[in-house]
Design a protein around this nucleic acid. Structure first.
Lengths: 232, 232
DNA sequence: CTCCTGTAGATTGGATCCAATCTACAATAA
DNA sequence: TTATTGTAGATTGGATCCAATCTACAGGAG
């Protein structure tokens, strides 16, 4: 070390606590559908599974609760939440509104490097399509979208969007394999990237809105039929 | 009991756990400015203050972290977050976008009873103005706004807005007493309610947007001068 | 037979205890 | 003098233990 003792960290490693790690893993399992709507998450079972005590599990569950994936009732424990179809539709409306806003702000600031990175992510995403790897699909899909928005510098909006995406992904994954909207989404992503590269703000935003609302329509109609026409 | 044993609860009492209660109290103390930006929230001190163990305190801190009021670093504890001025501005932009959306949806469904309730809340709000009761101001201000939006039935949007409002309230309270924008806000709230009663959707929405952006402008300019022109 | 009541097992909530880590300061060497 | 190193106190992270509450089922009264 040639510099002073109190120097800014030049390399930072991700040091996440046990609760965070657990929350991540549990979130993934909920998103994968391993834990279904209404399932009870028993603290002791989870603790034994991961070979930890119940304490970090409880904190992890609180984190999931904050993310809206579970609800905790006093002396009754945590259960996986179920979102009504109309609220899922609302979540997509929110995505449309917020994502269009950040995209419009981002495009003027997008660098060629960033666009190249987006292209890379899209390539990975298309690979995961073909492999029917739904798990990595969710992550890559958000990575692709967010890579286009990052240049907006709207950190608060991005934080909100990340939370919303977790919720929508949950339902997208469950029904993605059943439908054949994969190719559709693939085409739409490519066209969206093309419009961003061309810096066509208006068209890109309009296209993004159509893309999101399209996904919404497909999913919600699917949900409403599978859950039964009459609202439970 | 004339009905079956497994009957729907007709009266429900608020049964909140200790962590929730603690989180509520701590949140209020942060919003009041008792805990300032950068302050460390030491688990043991808080536990002793409330005469509980550190365990519920930790869960409460996790909840606050999820709400964005504190950040927890491994083995370093929780510190109150500081939001840069440009991100506060962004939060107001988000409020404008989302609140205008729900207001437009709500107005057609607003009942006379709901409007009467809004009027009551506004009366209380104006009282708290005159008493310089900044603490209850924050709560009542959100209650007034949300009372106008509730009829929209957009629960997800409302949840987001509640979280955003907590963040903005924090900074509004700190600088509200210093400025004389109180009368201004009072007039704006009355006019907003009047437009809702008249079911003037377009005008109400436009007025609301102006109201929010007005608050934003006042606050952000205030913040930027008090924090120093050069970004820290 | 039905409904109420009480009790046992399961599960969560909270407290206490120990280990790991951080921070600050003192001691030492260049 | 200055920078490094070592150590003590403080603080957080995690585990274990006990109390409070819930759930399910068995037993008894009507």
């Amino acid at each position: 070390m040639k510099t002073k003792a109190t120097l800014a960290a030049s390399r930072q490693i991700k040091r996440q606590s046990l609760p965070e790690t657990l929350a991540e893993s549990l979130r993934e399992r909920i998103l994968n559908g391993e834990f279904k709507e209404g399932d009870a998450l028993v603290q002791d079972s989870i603790a034994q599974e991961y070979d930890v005590s119940r304490m970090p599990v409880r904190e992890a569950l609180r984190q999931l609760e904050a993310g809206g994936l579970v609800v905790m009732k006093v002396h009754k424990g945590a259960v996986v939440t179920a979102i009504p179809a109309d609220q899922i539709e609302e979540l997509f409306d929110l995505r449309a509104m917020l994502e269009c806003d950040v995209l419009a702000r981002a495009i003027p600031h997008l660098t060629d490097e960033q666009l190249a990175a987006s292209r890379d992510i899209l390539a990975q995403l298309e690979k995961s399509y073909k492999r029917k790897d739904v798990a990595s699909w969710g992550r890559l899909n958000w990575e692709f979208h967010s890579s286009l928005y990052a240049a907006s510098g709207r950190v608060q909006t991005m934080a909100l969007l990340q939370g919303i995406n977790v919720q929508t992904d949950r339902y997208i994954r469950l029904h993605l394999l059943l439908t054949h909207n994969l190719e559709e989404a693939e085409v739409e992503h490519r066209e969206l990237l093309r419009l961003c590269v061309a810096r066509e703000v208006k068209r890109a935003v309009a296209y993004l809105r159509a893309h999101i609302m399209n996904t919404s329509r497909n999913l919600v109609s699917e949900l409403k039929s599978s859950r039964g026409p009459a609202t439970a």
